[in-house]
């Protein structure tokens, strides 16, 4: 066991896979010598050489497009988008190719790529550095979408993502990159994709959340407890494929569902979870499902961001509303 933060854990997972599989290649903007702007790939170029860990030219479309080619030819590229806000030039490659190759070649060519990207608000960043657009990826048939919330999960999920034979969008909640430290096994382990985790048992309502918001929900749950309300918290961990079973069983027990996420509310992961609950647990519901999410607006610049960010107080308010419906 070793104490790691999220950055260390992701680095450690990359290190393990680079050591164990010669086909793993890591590249992106500034990931080589500098080790990435968040230092996630620090030390890896030194250890594995410039052919396996390197700086690419500044072009997201070609980063993903070349990864598609490499993957088809047998490599397992793990590429970095410097921020999720800069992935858009690569959308054509993700949607039109990475997500489709397997199907359109009837399984002949596959694209085992991991596309890592820091995402989310709360770091007082410049424009385009704070958005949470996971729903865009969840909507693409043919890719998986993973979001860890702890160093332990970050490591285990990334190892699974690299070993997955499909393209995985691996979104890193940068607000908690260094905020959470925990003991993580140094040896290799993996956490299956598509499995949510129940973080805390409770009776009065179920909250599904993921990424940096997990911590905020946990704080709100402590406040709710003082009001005599116990919350069951589910950390989704994989956005797609989504773990219907864990959600279903929990809501059938608690009778109430709330999703907490920072992305714009409309057409969101929260909307999807709401629909799953309606399909799977309609007759158990004691109140309408609730989406606690970002506004359908651009994330404001730092001076206005506090209006947008979801706080434990806001979650508590929504919990009370839901329970007292």
């Amino acid at each position: 066991m070793k104490v790691m933060n999220l950055v260390n854990a992701i680095n450690n997972a990359l290190d393990i896979k680079l050591a164990e599989d010669k086909n793993v290649i890591v590249y992106g903007e500034d990931v080589g010598k500098e080790g990435g702007v968040f230092r996630v790939t620090e030390g890896l170029q030194k250890k594995y050489g410039k052919e396996r860990v390197f700086d690419s030219p500044l072009a997201e479309s070609a980063i993903v497009g070349t990864a598609v080619g490499m993957a088809i030819a047998g490599l397992r590229p793990v590429v970095e988008m410097q921020f999720s806000g800069f992935v858009y030039p690569a959308f054509n490659q993700i949607i039109s190719h990475a997500a489709r190759f397997r199907n359109r070649t009837r399984g002949r060519y596959t694209t085992p790529i991991v596309i890592r990207m820091p995402y989310g608000g709360g770091i007082n960043a410049l424009e385009h550095h704070s958005e949470s657009m996971e729903a865009l990826f969840g909507h693409i048939p043919g890719v998986k979408v993973v979001i860890p919330s702890t160093p332990h999960d970050a490591k285990g999920l990334l190892i699974s993502a690299i070993e997955s034979d499909d393209t995985v969008i691996y979104m890193e909640p940068k607000r908690i990159y260094r905020a959470i430290k925990q003991e993580v096994p140094e040896e290799k382990f993996s956490i299956p994709l598509g499995k949510a985790k129940i973080l805390q048992k409770g009776d009065d309502l179920t909250i599904v959340t993921y990424g940096a918001l997990v911590r905020e929900v946990q704080k709100a749950a402590v406040m709710a407890k003082k009001q005599g309300i116990t919350v069951e918290i589910i950390d989704l961990r994989t956005i797609y494929p989504i773990d219907r079973e864990t959600i279903r069983e929990s809501v059938r027990k608690t009778g109430r569902i709330m999703t907490v996420a920072e992305s714009p509310r409309s057409f969101s992961v929260a909307s999807e979870i709401t629909q799953i609950v309606i399909e799977e647990a309609f007759l158990y519901l004691e109140a309408p499902p609730r989406r606690v999410a970002g506004f359908d607006t651009i994330v404001p610049l730092p001076k206005g961001e506090y209006h947008y960010l979801i706080t434990p107080e806001k979650i508590l308010y929504e919990i009370l509303n839901l329970v007292n419906y």
Partner: peptide
């Protein structure tokens, strides 16, 4: 420079 990236890795 583009952050840390020099010309030889850019073009």
């Amino acid at each position: 420079y583009a952050i840390s990236t020099r010309k030889e890795n850019q073009t």
